[in-house]
Design a protein around this nucleic acid. Structure first.
Lengths: 248, 248
DNA sequence: ATAATAGTGTCTCTCAGACAATATCGC
DNA sequence: GCGATATTGTCTGAGAGACACTATTAT
């Protein structure tokens, strides 16, 4: 920073301009009981009091150094959840989406295994629970434009499954290949070919055998696998892992 | 909105909380003289006075109804450009990127034919000009974290060429197939196979013949084509149009 | 042995990439 | 015709999708 900049900053007032509000919202997904689920909270304060909404809230300049900090903080505060995978989704901003003010929401989407989230029934009247996703919707009208954000997140999730292994973040550290394939099928809503699925996994070198085998099945037990790298989110397939989904 | 909401809003003060600043920035690309170019402006005021930067600026709640409004307004005000294709890129927000304040920037990227932009040398000291992109960079250190945003935009542009026809927005309404292929090759930095390129275009049904033919060439003249739909940005290929680029 | 699911082998048909052949302009 | 580039045709190897076959558990 040069001298002129310094001088300018001395006279700069951060509150001089009329600013929009800035919030972050998170779409947290999991898969449980053969269904794709999304984490929602019931709002305890206006506006939209009593309506279900995505977890989120306003940036706190004192607590948050970055946008990502804000997302993790809100998620922790509102749901107690720590999602192993988070990525930015889209930003929406306009004069009408929040009755209080011109508001920008930076939306994120996150993936977590079902059993990593313990929904403590908050001390206040607020409720948190998983809602089943059907097609690109939940069966409830959400606060603000959160139905739109949810639909976007679902589309992003589906298209990312085409060429990444991020669905692994919905399972535990070790998983069987039938489990992994079932996860893909649940989210995509269609059956995949076993041979092609495994061939693609093998070629992409994203999973590796463990010595562990399923116990007490009434059929041939499956072997457990784990992902090869820490950065599961960055596991790209050389070709689409679910080509079938691209057909139609 | 219910009664309780209304009552709440009456007492709501938009300036009560300490908010971050919100800006939009645009990475405008074109192709000219066999090179990918990006539109930059020289800053006329602190901070980073005299440094080159992406066009952009703060949201104006009075003038802008939406984020997209803000982008188009800033682009028009600062460069006189009207880009036929704009999409949101990414949002960056933290305490350090702008010395004035905790700032969120919502970055966009845009495509335009070279001759659609007339760079009027602004009445103030501000300069605007096209800079050549080499690899994922321009040969200058930009203000703020704009080098990072630029790199992101270039990567997004390249990967979008794999499966969409958006490069068409860099050309005029009518273009020859060799021109279109050359545009892809310039941006991707590698030669593409002519047969495969045309076969993919044909299968995707994204272009259609016109009756116009090149004039005064010293070789066989090429036919002009146009895109089949208005929404050129949404032209998806059933397969990657430039498979070669995925090899390596 | 049977039921049930895990895991593998293999065939076929499509298609990407390579390259050759042909077409059409100015000179 | 010649040089240059546009446009089309064809061959070949790789790989996706389909489906049959083998493996391993409990009963």
């Amino acid at each position: 920073m040069n001298k002129k900049d310094k001088n300018y900053l001395k006279n700069f007032s951060p509150t001089r301009y009329n600013r929009p509000s800035v919030a972050v919202d998170v779409v947290v997904f999991t898969v449980h009981e053969e269904q794709l689920k999304v984490l929602l909270i019931k709002r305890g304060v206006p506006p939209f009091e009593g309506k279900w909404a995505l977890p989120g809230g306003f940036i706190n300049k004192a607590k948050d150094k970055t946008l990502d900090d804000a997302v993790l903080r809100e998620l922790q505060e509102e749901t107690g959840a720590i999602a192993p995978y988070i990525e930015q989704l889209y930003s929406i901003g306009n004069a009408d989406r929040d009755p209080r003010d011109w508001t920008v929401s930076i939306a994120y989407f996150a993936l977590t295994p079902y059993d990593k989230v313990s929904l403590k029934a908050g001390t206040d009247a607020r409720q948190t629970r998983w809602w089943t996703v059907r097609n690109t919707k939940v069966n409830v009208k959400l606060a603000f434009d959160h139905n739109d954000i949810l639909a976007m997140a679902i589309n992003r999730l589906r298209s990312k499954l085409e060429y990444t292994a991020i669905a692994g973040h919905l399972l535990g550290a070790e998983f069987t290949l039938p489990q992994l394939q079932a996860t893909y099928e649940i989210i995509l809503g269609e059956k995949l070919d076993k041979t092609a699925f495994r061939r693609n996994l093998r070629r992409a070198e994203v999973v590796q055998e463990t010595s562990r085998i399923e116990q007490q099945t009434d059929h041939r037990p499956a072997r457990f696998y784990k992902f090869t790298k820490n950065a599961t989110g960055m596991l790209f397939f050389p070709r689409s892992i679910v080509r079938a989904a691209m057909k139609k």
